[in-house]
């Protein structure tokens, strides 16, 4: 059988091999829609060569294994199931290159959904009593989206992300406000990072800091003599909050936290999708804003959690306008991504 082929080729191939087509058709599940079946059929055909003992027209345990893996793949793509790591690794390779249009998106139990309302007295529709829905549910929803899919998809934050994130940041806003009250107000002499971290933790989430050494960033504006130092970008729940620079990582982090806390000084905070530069190109990013109009743009992004591409890909030269921190040729990777617990 030939190598990689796409959907059209599959049907063409099958029309040339009617017996094979018929045999394969017998594996279609009663409940599979056309779309699901054609994707899974492609998976089976592409991988048949890996199972040499599979002979068309006969049943065997290796055929069953192939069918089982095809179901694992299909269940993963269409139902949102995930399996033990070894199994997932297997199907990841096997399913490469298969394009599925608009795969469904699901919230799985890892997103804390089972914590949503315990099995209280079965008075459904009556949420009184002590049932409170889990807070982690809403907050971890976007992470469900980042589940590995071999389908190619658009990069960028999903359009509904701001609405989903807003409640969490409203809560965070309150937490920060109270924290600052007890700290005596926002000022230069606070441990900004600690304040931010503890507030985020009280809302049961984590802060993500990405560090990049200054010298790794190309195209810095002229006049910057110090090449030593670090830049830190702070995100929470993939929403960008602030960037800071300092001699060492701690200083960079502190400055970034201070910038982040500044956002909370307004009357409210809003999560929005804005354009920023990331590695020399314009991207859509999730950003936390206060209510004041933003005069200047954002500093370039150091991390971009909305795509599948690995971070250390070589970016080909764009040859476009050189702007602040535009990456020309060299690639840089964030040295350390610290997840603060």
């Amino acid at each position: 059988m030939a190598g990689v082929r796409c959907g059209d080729d599959v049907s063409e191939y099958l029309s040339q091999n009617p017996q094979l087509a018929q045999w394969i058709e017998s594996f279609r599940g009663y409940c599979e829609s056309n779309k699901q079946w054609s994707a899974r059929r492609e998976f089976i055909l592409r991988n048949m060569e890996a199972f040499p003992t599979v002979k068309p027209g006969t049943c065997s345990s290796s055929l069953d294994r192939l069918l089982s893996l095809s179901m694992v793949w299909a269940n993963h793509v269409f139902l949102g199931c995930s399996y033990p790591q070894a199994v997932m690794d297997k199907i990841k390779d096997m399913g490469e290159g298969i394009v599925v249009q608009d795969p469904p998106v699901h919230k799985t139990t890892k997103d804390g959904i089972t914590a949503r309302g315990k099995r209280s007295a079965p008075d459904d529709g009556n949420p009184e009593g002590c049932v409170k829905r889990s807070r982690t549910e809403a907050d971890s929803r976007p992470s469900g989206r980042a589940a590995a899919r071999s389908a190619i998809q658009k990069s960028g934050p999903p359009p509904q992300a701001p609405a989903e994130q807003q409640p969490f940041f409203n809560r965070l806003y309150k937490a920060v406000a109270w924290k600052l009250v007890s700290a005596g107000g926002f000022g230069p002499n606070l441990d900004h990072f600690e304040i931010l971290r503890s507030c985020v933790e009280s809302c049961k989430q984590t802060v993500t800091c990405v560090f990049v050494p200054l010298k790794d960033i190309e195209g810095l504006p002229a006049g910057r003599t110090q090449k030593d130092g670090h830049v830190c970008e702070i995100r929470c729940q993939t929403v960008y909050m602030g960037t800071g620079y300092g001699r060492d990582e701690a200083a960079a982090k502190a400055m970034a936290s201070k910038e982040a806390l500044k956002v909370f000084q307004g009357r409210k905070v809003t999560v929005k999708i804005c354009r920023r530069r990331y590695r020399g190109r314009e991207v859509e990013d999730l950003v936390l804003l206060d209510e004041l109009p933003r005069t200047q743009g954002f500093p370039p992004a150091l991390s971009y959690p909305f795509q599948d591409e690995p971070q250390d890909e070589v970016v080909s030269p764009r040859g476009g306008k050189a702007g602040p921190w535009t990456l020309i040729e060299k690639c840089w990777t964030p040295r350390r991504i610290m997840f603060m617990s």
Partner: peptide
């Protein structure tokens, strides 16, 4: 193995 997902959607 496909009958036994570790994690599933609700």
């Amino acid at each position: 193995i496909d009958f036994y997902p570790d994690d599933f959607a609700i």
